[in-house]
Simulated scan of single mutants.
Amino acid sequence: MADIPAGGGVILKEQSLVLTKDASGKVCAFSAICTHQGCVVTDVGDGTINCPCHGSKFDASTGERVAGPAKSPLPAVAVEQRDGAIFQA
């Protein structure tokens, strides 16, 4: 969990997950597969999860689409925090 920067996130490509953390420390998880054409998102910055293929951007706290051609949000993935680690629920 310490690897996730507050206000940012990390992409776990092997698990196809994006983990984000807000300023209060709340961790959220989303699919890393863009809902536009299935590209893998590549970074989290300035409050958005960003897809390199066609410029779609998703809110890092909710997964909702905020820009680009994607019409649907990134699906949320249930996770649990235990002993400083994050596990898929």
Rank of each mutant, 00 (worst) to 15 (best):
C53H: 02
A78L: 10
E14S: 14
C28D: 13
T35L: 00
P52E: 07
A6E: 14
T48I: 14
R65Q: 07
V79Y: 04
S72E: 14
F58Y: 12
G8A: 04
R82D: 06
L17V: 03
S31F: 08
Q15I: 13
D46V: 03
A67H: 11
V27Y: 05
N50C: 08
Q88T: 13
K71F: 01
V41F: 07
S24V: 09
A32K: 03
A67E: 06
Q37M: 15
I4A: 04
A78N: 09
C28N: 15
N50H: 11
Q81L: 11
L12N: 13
N50W: 09
C51R: 07
G45V: 10
L74H: 09
P5Q: 11
L17S: 01
P73R: 08
L17R: 01
F30Y: 03
A2Y: 12
K26H: 11
C39N: 12
T20W: 10
A89W: 10
V66G: 07
Q88S: 12
A89V: 03
A76L: 04
C34T: 00
P75N: 05
L17D: 00
V18H: 08
D43Q: 13
V40H: 00
A60K: 08
V77D: 00
E64L: 13
I4N: 05
A29Y: 02
P75E: 05
A32I: 12
G8N: 02
V77E: 00
A29F: 08
G25P: 11
Q15P: 03
L19I: 09
V66C: 11
Q37H: 15
R82E: 09
A60F: 09
T35M: 01
A60C: 09
K26E: 08
I49T: 00
V40D: 00
G7E: 05
P75Y: 05
V10G: 06
L19S: 07
T48N: 15
D3L: 10
D22Y: 02
D83K: 06
I33K: 04
V66M: 10
V79E: 01
G84P: 08
D46E: 07
A6C: 14
G47R: 09
S61W: 05
A89Y: 13
C34S: 01
G68L: 02
L17P: 00
P5H: 10
S31A: 13
G63S: 05
V77F: 00
G68I: 06
E64Q: 15
G63L: 04
A85I: 12
P52I: 05
V27P: 03
Q37V: 15
G68T: 07
D43E: 12
G47Y: 10
A29T: 10
L12W: 14
P69A: 08
S16Q: 07
K71S: 02
L19G: 08
P75G: 04
G47E: 05
A32W: 06
E64F: 12
L74Y: 07
H36F: 01
C34Y: 01
V27M: 00
C51S: 07
I49R: 00
P69F: 11
P52W: 04
G7H: 04
A23P: 03
G9N: 06
T20L: 12
V77S: 00
E14W: 15
V41E: 01
A60W: 06
A70D: 07
L74V: 05
R82T: 09
D46W: 03
A76Y: 00
V44R: 00
C39P: 08
G84Q: 10
K26Q: 11
G84T: 11
Q15T: 13
D43K: 14
I4Q: 07
T35Q: 02
